[in-house]
Design a protein around this nucleic acid. Structure first.
Lengths: 199, 199
DNA sequence: GTCTATATCCGGATAGAC
DNA sequence: GTCTATCCGGATATAGAC
């Protein structure tokens, strides 16, 4: 296996995934046909099936990309000194989805909804989503504990607050995707106020 | 049109919707075939298509049922005297989905996720979901305002806090559907503590 | 009103030429 | 490695008998 081939393979895979991402963002997983992906990628059916065994495999890969990087960015943020306050953490979380995927913001939220819904049914997608959510929960709890250890008070245990922090993002995404409301800025203000009176 | 016919029609429609609900809860909208619904209802294809013109029409009807009643129950709760506190409202919201559909709790959360994801794509479903979410937002804002007018303080404006309250349910549903965590009780405790320190 | 049988279409995946 | 052409299965919706 010469080097060229590996690079080539990676490039092709990326090309396909990017095309699939666009299609899935536009129409969702189920309404997207392989023909859509193939057309968007500018390849042929045979070529695509050379890199992915099935549509399901592409879905799982895209779901993975959606979550990719969240943890890393969050970890470096949470490791800051002094430790960020719960309000800071909340604000950071809320801004994450858009920061992570600066392109195609309009279709990002619906895509996230699709991924979550799929994660509730598709075992493979569930695997990646579940591990990310669980990791997120422990990371957030650890950060909250750090904040408490530095002399601040928390309204509840870190383990109980972490899921609440996560809900803030999830709820915003859903409401935005369905009603277009509220704006990130309005939402951020409400959330920050709530946590600041509670620290 | 004799009375019998109307009652009959209503009963049949209900029968079909109940069957569809079960199938959708189990497998989601897209993985459910008309054959599934037809079999579950114990009817024939011809009969089902007599009451619903298409699968899409059934999806919209089920989505409507999922939201049915939420508003009414919430309104009577919020109208209580003395006005419920933000913490009380949050707790009520969190418990709602399970109270509303006491049967089939295990599959309720995934079904909700499916409905939300569908609402982000399917215009008809979006219509019902959007109107419910918007109504919910104004109703909650009004209740928070009432609480403030009775002499309590709020960390932010009612309009900013209402979406945050809604997020609490949505996040719990999603986390439960995907990871099975946290339990309603743990979650409730965290949420209540957060809002009680802030009232 | 209801059922059976089926027309019609479409999507995923493959086979084989180049 | 890549493309074209195609197969097969399954899904929606309908037609027509009873």
């Amino acid at each position: 296996m010469p080097k060229v081939t590996d690079a080539h393979r990676a490039a092709r895979r990326g090309q396909i995934l990017q095309a699939a991402w666009k299609c899935f963002a536009r129409k969702g997983f189920h309404a997207t046909s392989m023909a859509d992906v193939i057309g968007e990628a500018g390849l042929s059916a045979g070529a695509v099936y050379l890199y992915f065994r099935s549509k399901d495999e592409i879905i799982v890969a895209v779901a993975g990309q959606v979550f990719a990087g969240i943890e890393d960015r969050l970890l470096t943020f949470l490791a800051g000194d002094p430790p960020p306050s719960p309000a800071d953490i909340a604000e950071f979380l809320i801004r994450q989805p858009l920061r992570a995927h600066a392109d195609a913001p309009a279709e990002l939220y619906p895509l996230l909804l699709s991924v979550w819904a799929e994660a509730a049914r598709n075992p493979a997608v569930n695997g990646v989503a579940r591990s990310v959510l669980e990791e997120l929960r422990t990371v957030l709890a650890r950060a909250l504990r750090r904040w408490a250890e530095v002399g601040h008070s928390l309204p509840a245990s870190p383990e109980q607050l972490a899921p609440v922090l996560m809900s803030l993002v999830q709820g915003l995404v859903m409401q935005q995707a369905i009603t277009g409301q509220p704006t990130v800025e309005d939402y951020r203000t409400g959330v920050r106020a709530l946590f600041e009176t509670a620290d």
